[in-house]
Design a protein around this nucleic acid. Sequence first.
DNA 1: TGCCAGGCCGGGT
DNA 2: ACCCGGCATGGC
Length: 232
Amino acid sequence: MERMTSGYKKNAARTKTLFRIYRKLYARFGPQGWWPADGAFEVMVGAILTQNTAWSNVEKAIANLKGENAMRPARMAGMPHRKLAALIKPSGFFNVKAARLRNFLRFYMKRFDGDIRALKRVPLDGLRKELLSVNGIGKETADSILLYAAGKPSFVVDAYTKRVFSRHGFVPEEAGYDALRDVFMKNLPARTGLFKEYHALLVALCKRHCLSRKPVCRGCPLSGIKGHSFRG
DNA sequence: TGCCAGGCCGGGT
DNA sequence: ACCCGGCATGGC
């Protein structure tokens, strides 16, 4: 018997609503072309560095790494904790993140020999579990790596996704990561390009309209969307 | 000045 | 199974 981890089922009305939201955002903000990085390895590093951190700070850390020619798996993996931590300092939590990067790199070198093509050969679900087993890689980081580095249709949920969807009443305020992810995974076709743009567009929306903690954003492109609920 | 940013882990209940 | 403190910098 298959275990129900959420109450959501595939549902034509929900699919329609998700596409309606997508089209509104796309019409407003255009193609985002995410993830903003120079290659798959940089995507994975950035995904760890941006944990609970402003992207502008991550950019400084990435620039430091590139300046030391360290944006390469073998080189970064061979770097002492202290040195790596110093380079990524602007991104904050530098001791924690240096350890997490090194954990990931040990896994990446050992399991895939630092070769992104090898990583891409592993099917989505299995690879997701492997990534989640690395200390320092949680659900959002794993899904970001899967989608934007490996090119697999794994929808990324983040604080913005949750803010938009709960604030507009599409999901309950208390909805967790898995419930939110299921909304997209179970009601959209599993297309990588669609998932990439959708997540990026939600970020664009929040940066433009939802940064404040006010419950409703003025001029929100989604204000006209009928509040079809994804509850239960 | 104080609050916040594209989380995650570990220990306590 | 939750809940919470800790981790740290730079920008407004």
